[in-house]
């Protein structure tokens, strides 16, 4: 059992949780992720490590409430516990002095994983640019925190309600066009954003890393649910990644494989909605509804 030390709501659909996990905090590095399972009947979901504090023994995760599991997770409060919390998983980002500048593009909830990478790159002596993008102002979070770990922060929103009114590739192009050596680029966010960042970077010949958020089950390399195609080779995002050379990623595979379970995800969401129709439902009632909703399984002898 892992205790939630603190729970915050960052935006209308994004929550933060600080989890008491000293062993993981001791080993965590930027770029890695955890897998958590809220309860006995819950699925295992991967979340990137947004922050860690080795002294306090805590790991911070940030998640967008997009489906049943994340919405259910969002109902937890400080003091509640999470049944399973596994990590740190995946390979850490390559942190070093790149020479010149590094540019980190963070889209939406991608702000979370970018933060520890930016901090580590800054500590390593790099000149760090961060481009933070979101649909609208209310979806931007951690602006101050990010400001503290980078040299220049560029904000943009699709509707112009905060920062520039543009998509992230616009400031990215401008930075790349400026006569400065670009040591490295990171793009972390929705797959489609990462794909277009790679396209933007291509003519400038700058190296770009992306963090692929594939569907995962175990997160330890035993199933291949998270497989992606990089440079024509099959790779497992959980053990070979999640960061890969963006110029070599087959985005068609990445985008298609995200939809593997869309039908079931909708079904789970409908069930969850039915369970949460009224304002307050006690745990017992919700458990009863769960039972009612399960597919009828004929048993032996039926």
């Amino acid at each position: 059992m892992f205790k939630i030390i603190e729970k915050q709501s960052l935006t209308p659909n994004t929550d933060l949780m600080i989890i008491d996990a000293p062993e993981i905090a001791r080993k965590a590095a930027p770029g890695q992720f955890v897998i958590l399972r809220k309860d006995e009947t819950c699925e295992r979901i991967p979340l990137t490590i947004a922050d860690f504090d080795r002294e306090q023994g805590t790991v911070t995760v940030i998640f967008q409430k997009v489906g049943k599991s994340t919405r259910e997770l969002g109902e937890l409060k400080s003091g509640d516990v999470i049944r399973n919390f596994v990590g740190p998983l995946g390979k850490p980002s390559t942190i070093k002095m790149y020479g010149g500048r590094v540019i980190l593009v963070a889209g939406g909830v991608g702000i979370a994983p970018v933060y520890p990478i930016a901090r580590a790159l800054k500590d390593a002596g790099n000149y760090v640019y961060v481009i933070m993008g979101a649909r609208s102002a209310d979806l931007i979070f951690w602006e101050d925190k990010m400001n503290a770990v980078c040299d220049e922060l560029i904000l943009c929103t699709d509707d112009g309600s905060r920062g520039r009114k543009c998509v992230v590739t616009e400031p990215l192009t401008e930075l790349l066009e400026a006569p400065w050596i670009t040591g490295h680029v990171w793009a972390i966010g929705p797959a489609i954003m990462m794909k277009f960042c790679c396209k933007t970077v291509e003519p400038f010949d700058a190296p770009i890393d992306v963090s692929l958020d594939s569907i995962m089950v175990d997160g330890t390399g035993m199933c291949g649910a998270c497989r992606v195609e990089v440079d024509g080779q099959m790779r497992f995002a959980c053990v070979d990644g999640p960061e890969f050379d963006g110029s070599k990623v087959n985005w068609d595979v990445v985008l298609a494989r995200k939809k593997v379970f869309s039908q079931e995800e909708q079904e789970a969401m409908q069930v969850w909605n039915r369970e949460h129709q009224s304002e307050h439902i006690c745990n017992l009632e919700s458990a009863v509804r769960r039972q009612e909703n399960r597919r009828v399984l004929p048993l032996a002898g039926d």
Binding site: T41, C42, E43, R44, K68, S69, V217, D218, M222, C223, G224, A225, V260, F261, Q263, E264, E265, E267, A268, V271, R290, Q291, N293, R294, R295, L297
Partner: peptide
């Protein structure tokens, strides 16, 4: 993957258990 979803995650009891198996 198929067996882990079904056996460990009890995907055969979806949606009572969250893990889907298509």
């Amino acid at each position: 993957e198929f067996l882990t979803r079904i056996n460990l995650m009890k995907g055969f009891r979806f949606p009572e258990y969250d893990t889907p198996v298509h």
